[in-house]
């Protein structure tokens, strides 16, 4: 007997990785995001720009399931997160690669071991993932620092390591919160291009940044966040999406 897909799973099968409609979110008594309407698809890159304290990081927390929506519908990777069980939320989180503004690592582990962490959590043995991780390390340009403990890495190297870790488990959705912070403009653009490359393997990429100039370093959908409200600036042509309901 074949079990019918839920409407949320149908959305995912149609390549819609995230769809938020009328979502409010915030912390304790403070509401930070208001009436968010947003959609991200497979193979697309979205750039969210805006000034400091506009709500970009809160938006990323919402997408990575660290915040519950207060109202509206928030469907991430085929799961309505407001109604999902803890296990279902954890399963969604495993398919999201997240690069935090200040990435957290196990400081006394090497960059290599930190990058391999999602694969270890997935139950893979070192001999199975060593080559993949080496490849990732090369991809993000961290070859020389891979065997150093993370506490010895520079800010830019930490961001590269965080990106490599986010990509390790081949996530369906990659979230990067201000990944170019503290980098030179050249390095920042390289990082964004690196992330944008991931759309070629079918992942969706969402990048939050204060830097408006990143919008022209890769073909992407550009959104602007201001005072907790999100609005599209330039949208790459995309296929028609059926009605949410």
């Amino acid at each position: 007997m074949v079990r019918a897909n839920t409407p949320e799973q149908d959305l995912f099968e149609r390549g819609i990785l995230a769809r938020l409609s009328g979502v409010d979110a915030g912390y304790k008594t403070a509401t930070v995001l208001f009436g968010i309407e947003f959609e991200a698809r497979t193979g697309e890159v979205a750039l969210i720009t805006g000034p400091a304290a506009a709500g970009k990081t809160t938006f990323m927390h919402l997408l990575r399931l660290a915040l519950q929506p207060r109202s509206g519908r928030c469907v991430i990777l085929g799961t309505e997160v407001g109604k999902a069980s803890a296990r279902a939320r954890a399963n969604v989180k495993k398919r999201i690669g997240y690069v935090a503004e200040n990435p957290t690592f196990i400081e006394n582990w090497t960059a290599f071991d930190n990058i391999a962490m999602p694969l270890r959590l997935a139950g893979q043995k070192p001999r199975d993932y060593a080559d993949d991780v080496r490849e990732l390390v090369e991809f993000v340009g961290l070859t020389d620092a891979a065997d150093l403990t993370v506490e010895k890495l520079s800010g830019a190297e930490r961001h590269r390591a965080a990106i490599a870790r986010a990509l390790a488990a081949k996530p369906a959705l990659i979230l990067a919160d201000d990944p170019t912070a503290g980098m030179s403009p050249g390095d920042g653009r390289r990082i964004v291009r690196l992330l944008a490359e991931m759309r070629r393997v079918g992942a969706g990429v969402i990048i939050a940044s204060q830097d408006e100039t990143l919008a022209d370093c890769a073909p992407l959908n550009h959104w602007r966040m201001e005072r907790g409200r999100l609005s599209p600036i330039s949208q790459k042509a995309s296929e028609e999406v059926e009605a949410f309901e």
């Binding site: 296990r87 954890a90 989180k93 495993k94 935090a100 957290t104 962490m117 959590l121």
Partner: peptide, 9 residues
């Protein structure tokens, strides 16, 4: 924290 961020239950 890292494990939580990576989706470990």
């Amino acid at each position: 924290t890292v494990m939580c961020d990576l989706g470990a239950t």
